[in-house]
Structures are given as C-alpha cells and as structure tokens.
Amino acid sequence: MEELLAGGNTTEGVVKAGRTVRRPRGHRAAFASEVLRALNAAGVTWAPTYLGIDAEGRDTFSYIPGMTTDHPSQRDERSYAAFGGMLRELHDFSRGIPLASGAECLVHGDPGPFNVVMAEGMPVALIDWDSVHPGDAMEDVGYAGWTWCIHAVGNVPVADQARRLRQLADGYDAELRADVLIDAIFRCQDSIIRIEGANAGDGRLSDQRRRHARTAVEWAASCRHVLSTNLQLFTDALRHD
C-alpha cells in the first residue's frame, strides 16, 4: 500500500511504500543516484540509502522517519551546528572524487530545512538530491545560512536569527569569514530573484508555475531586506574576536 508524501518542497508523485520511498525519475536522477551510491558506500549515515529502480521506473530509497521544519520553534538549538557539520561532511567527502568533475566538490543544491528530515529537533537525513552537481561549496553554505536562519515571517527576533547563523557557520567551519558567508547568502537570494522573476513573466509557463515564481521572488526579496537592514548585527555575530 502506498501513501502519498506531502510537505516541504516534495516532488509530485513521491510515495511511501512500506519502509521505502518511491520517487519519479527526473532528468538528473541518474547522476543523483550515483552520488547517493557513493555516499552509501562511504557509510555516510545521513544520506538516504539508494535501493535502485522499481518495476514502475521510480527511484527507491530507504524511508527515514521524521519531519521537515519551517520555523525555529520546531528545531533543537543544536540543530544549526549539526546541519553545518553535515554539509561540511558532504563537501569534504566529495573533494577530488571523479563525480565532482574537477570542481571544488559536490554541492547538494537545495539544502534548505524543507529537504532535511528531523527527529526530536535534530537533522537525521538530507533528502531530495535532484539538484546535486559539481560546484562551489559556498553555494550550499550560503543557501543553508539563508533558509535555515533568516526569516522575514514567523516573528523570529533578528538577534536570534544572527545567533543561529553563527551556529550553522561554526558547525561548517569555525574559521569561516563573515564577509564570505554574507556575500554567499546575498548571491543566493539575488539568484532566486533573478531566475524566478524571469519565470514569473514567462507566458509559456503554467499559471501555477508563475504563481510559484512570484512567491519565490517575494520570499527571497523579503529575506534579503532582513539581512541588508540588519547587516551590522549579522556581521558582528559572525566575527571571530
């Protein structure tokens, strides 16, 4: 018996079947499955186990109990550093391996909290590997810093946002420079505003897709405003005195 999975940014058609998850294969599925096989072989415990392709042509993964989160109230305060450490493990593991194709490392590409399974407030799995690609580690760190820590909604005090950003940064690299991380966050936000802004005005796309694009632009722009108007507070929190 199959149960449709929803929530977060779940791809349409993802289901739970027993102790497995079945997911329709996209155009990046072959590469993503290679990456997961490599992580599984290396014993990376937070990577879903890739189990192959089922009779209906869907990718099959181990099911990991837990939930995704969209607000700090759903997370343990230790989760930010813990997730920073998970990203560092991915990047360190993939430096110099053939799958990285000469780039700095492999980049998950979408490491927001909507793609992290949490149990008792702590991250236990990074899921949805369709966007994995060779690239620059700061793509992931900037995006995670933004999506985990910077909030324009939800009544999260900015001082708490800055403190959690420091925790995530320390979990990744205790020597990470404030200006490098903040620049990476701005670049991620500006990229979403640019790409989804173009999609919002593309008449070839469905109404639903264009609505999603407008929502993404509003989200990125509002979070960018939080960061830019409180830049000194975030910078001070990230400094290593």
Results as ranks from 00 to 15, higher is better:
residue 2 E to M: 13
residue 3 E to I: 15
residue 4 L to T: 15
residue 7 G to D: 08
residue 10 T to L: 02
residue 11 T to W: 03
residue 12 E to H: 15
residue 18 G to H: 10
residue 19 R to E: 15
residue 20 T to F: 05
residue 25 R to K: 06
residue 27 H to G: 01
residue 31 F to V: 06
residue 33 S to L: 03
residue 33 S to M: 05
residue 34 E to F: 00
residue 34 E to S: 08
residue 35 V to Y: 00
residue 38 A to G: 02
residue 40 N to M: 07
residue 40 N to K: 07
residue 41 A to I: 06
residue 42 A to M: 05
residue 44 V to R: 02
residue 49 T to L: 14
residue 58 R to F: 04
residue 60 T to G: 05
residue 60 T to N: 05
residue 67 M to Q: 13
residue 68 T to S: 04
residue 68 T to I: 09
residue 69 T to D: 07
residue 69 T to V: 13
residue 71 H to T: 08
residue 81 A to I: 11
residue 82 A to N: 03
residue 85 G to T: 07
residue 86 M to K: 09
residue 86 M to L: 15
residue 89 E to Q: 15
residue 90 L to C: 03
residue 90 L to Q: 03
residue 90 L to G: 00
residue 96 G to R: 10
residue 99 L to R: 02
residue 104 E to T: 12
residue 106 L to M: 07
residue 112 G to A: 04
residue 112 G to P: 00
residue 114 F to D: 14
residue 114 F to G: 01
residue 119 A to M: 08
residue 121 G to C: 00
residue 125 A to V: 07
residue 129 W to A: 04
residue 132 V to C: 07
residue 134 P to A: 13
residue 134 P to T: 06
residue 135 G to W: 00
residue 138 M to N: 09
residue 140 D to V: 03
residue 141 V to S: 07
residue 144 A to N: 08
residue 145 G to Q: 06
residue 145 G to W: 09
residue 148 W to G: 00
residue 151 H to V: 02
residue 152 A to L: 10
residue 153 V to D: 15
residue 154 G to K: 04
residue 159 A to Y: 05
residue 160 D to T: 14
residue 165 L to F: 01
residue 165 L to N: 01
residue 167 Q to W: 15
residue 168 L to S: 01
residue 168 L to P: 06
residue 168 L to M: 11
residue 176 L to V: 04
residue 178 A to S: 11
residue 183 D to M: 05
residue 185 I to N: 02
residue 185 I to P: 07
residue 185 I to A: 02
residue 187 R to V: 14
residue 189 Q to C: 11
residue 191 S to Q: 11
residue 195 I to H: 10
residue 197 G to D: 03
residue 203 G to W: 14
residue 208 Q to S: 11
residue 213 A to Y: 06
residue 215 T to Y: 08
residue 226 V to D: 03
residue 231 L to I: 14
residue 233 L to R: 14
residue 235 T to V: 09
